[in-house]
């Protein structure tokens, strides 16, 4: 087993990862206020909506990559970044939802309700978001301790949430599905690795 980095190194790394994960949000804020040549373009609401949603999915996939990477590389300290990455996924997905509800729909509850009930891709997105909320709420050390074994069971919700999230993305694309296919392939690999390890050592 390789030696883990010192706590000080980990802390410095965490600050760097945090700053990097915040960069997309910083660029979106700059673009919103058209600072430094950034711009959201002709349809700013759509741009914010799509960017936040895609970053949410990216961070979800990055979070899901932590455990396989740790298994394959033996770098167990990688798990110390998992909570932060998962919370960034939740952050971007929440922004995505808020842009939809506040800016795109302007809190018009009728049309929002109609969307959720009648548009399957929006139904999928909402269900995925609802699955992620308890995970964010129970992400603290205290909740982990309090829930014990049930914590892990609960947090397996991230798998269906990620599947629904990619499906949600795929379903709203008009014709050019290259991007959602990339997300789906990455997700399939990440879940496949887990399945592989599980089948190899059923006793846990």
């Amino acid at each position: 087993m390789r030696r883990a980095p010192s706590n000080a190194t980990l802390r410095a790394l965490k600050v760097m990862v945090f700053a990097a994960a915040l960069l997309p949000a910083v660029f979106l804020v700059l673009a919103t206020f058209e600072i430094g040549g950034q711009s959201l373009g002709a349809n700013p609401i759509e741009e914010l909506l799509h960017e936040a949603g895609e970053w949410g999915l990216r961070f979800l996939l990055i979070t899901l990559a932590v455990t396989p990477l740790r298994r394959i590389s033996g770098l167990n300290w990688l798990v110390r970044f998992r909570r932060m990455l998962g919370l960034f996924a939740f952050f971007y997905i929440s922004v995505h939802f808020l842009v939809y509800a506040l800016l795109d729909q302007r809190l018009a509850l009728g049309p929002i309700f109609e969307d959720i009930v009648e548009r399957p891709y929006i139904t999928l997105g909402i269900v995925a978001l609802l699955m992620l909320i308890p995970l964010a709420l129970t992400s603290t050390k205290g909740m982990m301790r309090r829930l014990g074994r049930r914590w892990q069971a609960l947090h397996r919700l991230v798998y269906p949430a990620a599947i629904l999230g990619v499906w949600h993305f795929w379903w709203q694309v008009k014709e050019d599905i290259r991007e959602p296919v990339i997300y789906a392939v990455i997700l399939a690999v990440l879940l496949g690795i887990r399945l592989f390890y599980r089948l190899r050592s059923p006793a846990r």
């Binding site: 919103t32 959201l40 002709a42 349809n43 700013p44 609401i45 759509e46 914010l48 800016l103 795109d104 302007r106 049309p111 109609e114 969307d115 009648e118 548009r119 399957p120 891709y121 379903w171 709203q172």
Partner: peptide, 19 residues
């Protein structure tokens, strides 16, 4: 089949434009 055609977003109305 996947979205409503009842309302539209007029391009150029910015972040707070109403459909």
């Amino acid at each position: 089949p996947r979205w409503s055609q009842a309302r539209e977003r007029r391009i150029g109305t910015g972040l707070f434009g109403e459909k």
